[in-house]
Amino acid sequence: MKKFICIMCPKGCHLTVDEANDYQVSGHSCNKGVKYGKAEATHPVRVVTSTVLVEGGKTPLCSVKTADGIPKNLVLEAMKEINRVRLQAPVTIGDVAIKNLLNTGIDVVTTSEMKSA
């Protein structure tokens, strides 16, 4: 049995996932909890948010995030890759900072705009 607190809504239901019984979820108050509990027990993913350096911009940092969740076990390695990025101003929202991060098929995109200095 695995235990999680659901983050799909503000209720924060205390979920129990029974791996021996086809990942049966209990403790949920809606179907979102069932989906979250199964996913968290079988293949947990996280959206990673961070900043990258921008050269020639009005400020030195630009916010970025993964375009979708990546496997939880890759988060630390993903941060190493993100920390290597250097963008050149100008930057617009949605620019791809890293294509296909760690061969996950997920891009890292900018979430803020950066004008040239």
Rank of each mutant, 00 (worst) to 15 (best):
V109H: 11
V85N: 03
G27R: 11
K11G: 00
H28P: 01
D18G: 02
V96Q: 00
K115N: 00
N103T: 01
V85M: 01
P44S: 11
E77W: 12
S50H: 15
I93W: 04
A41W: 13
D18F: 14
P44F: 06
T66V: 04
K72A: 06
Q24T: 15
H28C: 02
I7K: 15
L101S: 07
T92Q: 14
S63L: 04
L101H: 05
D18Q: 13
C30R: 12
H28E: 13
K99I: 01
S50V: 02
A117I: 00
E113C: 01
K65Q: 14
N21F: 02
R86K: 14
E55C: 04
G94A: 02
Y23L: 06
V91Q: 12
T110P: 08
A39P: 03
R84F: 01
V25W: 09
N103E: 09
L102W: 03
D18A: 06
A97Q: 02
R46H: 07
N103S: 09
V64N: 07
T110Q: 08
Y23V: 06
V45D: 08
A78Q: 14
A67H: 08
M79H: 12
D68R: 15
E81H: 13
K35S: 12
K35H: 09
N73K: 09
D68A: 11
L53E: 05
C30W: 12
A89L: 11
V64Y: 03
N21H: 13
K65P: 02
G33W: 09
K32G: 09
P10D: 14
M114S: 07
P10G: 12
A78G: 11
S116L: 03
I70E: 05
N31L: 09
K58Q: 07
G27L: 13
A20Y: 03
